[in-house]
């Protein structure tokens, strides 16, 4: 920490090591969006109610609006930008498009992040598993029907190819 109270943190973002001087009162979401131009996490509520800012912290989905920037020192952060080559992401990408599970798209990156984490943990998730994985991601457009179908189908796709 320097005299202004800022401090240097090291972390990996989408696989890339980063050193950055942060202010303690920045959230991880602020750091990603305003400083590092990682724009897929969206600001929906700033208090952990909507899940639009979901990212993976050491592999687990968290609301980046509820993590303070200094808290990610030494940690791994992954956003949709870092999942593009991931096999779970690829399967979800296909099924979200096939199933029309996207409307306005604002909640979509957060939902994709939550779904990737689920599919990494459970190869053959039940509908209840999917619901549990996505219960922290609000969507006001789709009524969730297609989203559930798309995640289910992505899991089936992955099962077949593995």
């Amino acid at each position: 920490m320097n005299e202004t109270g800022n401090l240097k943190i090291k972390f990996t973002l989408n696989g890339k090591p980063i050193e950055y001087m942060v202010k303690p009162n920045w959230t991880l979401l602020d750091l990603l969006r305003k400083e590092l131009s990682v724009l897929s996490p969206k600001e929906g509520c700033s208090r952990g109610d909507c899940g639009a800012c979901t990212v993976l912290l050491n592999g687990k989905p968290v609301n980046s609006c509820l993590v303070l920037a200094p808290q990610i020192d030494g940690k791994e952060i992954v956003t949709v930008e870092g999942l593009i080559e991931d096999k779970e992401f690829k399967a979800l990408k296909e099924t979200f498009i096939e199933k029309g599970a996207v409307q306005c798209g604002f909640c979509t990156p957060g939902i994709i992040v939550s779904a990737v984490a689920l599919l990494r943990e459970k190869g053959n998730p039940t509908v209840q598993d999917i619901e549990e994985a996505l219960e922290g991601n609000l969507c006001r457009c789709t009524g969730y029907i297609r989203i559930i179908e798309a995640v289910k189908q992505a899991a089936e796709k992955l099962q077949k190819t593995s």
């Binding site: 952990g48 989905p61 996505l134």
Partner: peptide
């Protein structure tokens, strides 16, 4: 309690 994101943190 909460949701997955909250429980993880």
């Amino acid at each position: 309690l909460g949701a997955t994101q909250i429980r993880n943190r």
